[in-house]
């Protein structure tokens, strides 16, 4: 039995984890360098898109089902909005992060707030990008090589 695209399969297996790791680095390093939730979300989604392109969409859907993505889309957005509501409940303005840690002398509340909303952005962006890809790619059956 021969396996199709053997080299590509091996490459994606090697690349998959480093891409996710890079996405996490970009996600949580946004305060210090270029990057943040939007970019990290896209890179996170790209790892799974690569997986789907090589292994086939059905295989990827077993790893990350559509139902999980739907929940992630909603939770990501609500995480952001919820941070805003939480700062209001703590006595500040909507998204006024200083309310998280008012005693801090080096604005720890701002750090926490930015980290939390960026996490929400990353979650919403990655799941939405993947969801759009699933919907577009899922309409056609397997792509034949001669189609290109």
């Amino acid at each position: 039995m021969s396996i199709e695209h053997l080299i590509l399969r091996v490459v994606i297996k090697i690349m998959f984890a480093p891409i996710l790791l890079f996405a996490l680095y970009v996600q949580f390093h946004g305060d210090y360098g270029p990057g943040g939730g939007f970019q990290a979300g896209v890179i996170f989604a790209v790892a799974f898109i690569l997986h789907a392109l090589i292994m086939g969409l059905e295989e990827t859907k077993r790893v990350l089902p559509v139902g999980v993505l739907k929940v992630m889309m909603v939770v990501g957005f609500l995480f952001y909005a919820g941070t805003g509501v939480a700062t209001m409940l703590l006595g500040g303005n909507l998204l006024g992060y200083d309310a998280i840690d008012p005693q801090s002398t080096h604005h720890a509340g701002q750090h926490w707030g930015i980290l939390l909303v960026e996490f929400g952005v990353g979650m919403a962006v990655s799941s939405t990008m993947l969801m759009i890809f699933y919907q577009f790619a899922g309409r056609e059956q397997e792509i034949r090589d001669e189609d290109w």
């Binding site: 946004g30 305060d31 210090y32 270029p34 943040g36 701002q110 707030g113 930015i114 960026e118």
Partner: peptide, 19 residues
């Protein structure tokens, strides 16, 4: 007090826009 000004503007000063 974050080094990347772009992130400060995006997530804090303009947090409502990013929402």
């Amino acid at each position: 007090a974050v080094p990347n000004i772009v992130t400060a503007v995006l997530a804090s000063y303009r947090g409502f826009d990013t929402l």
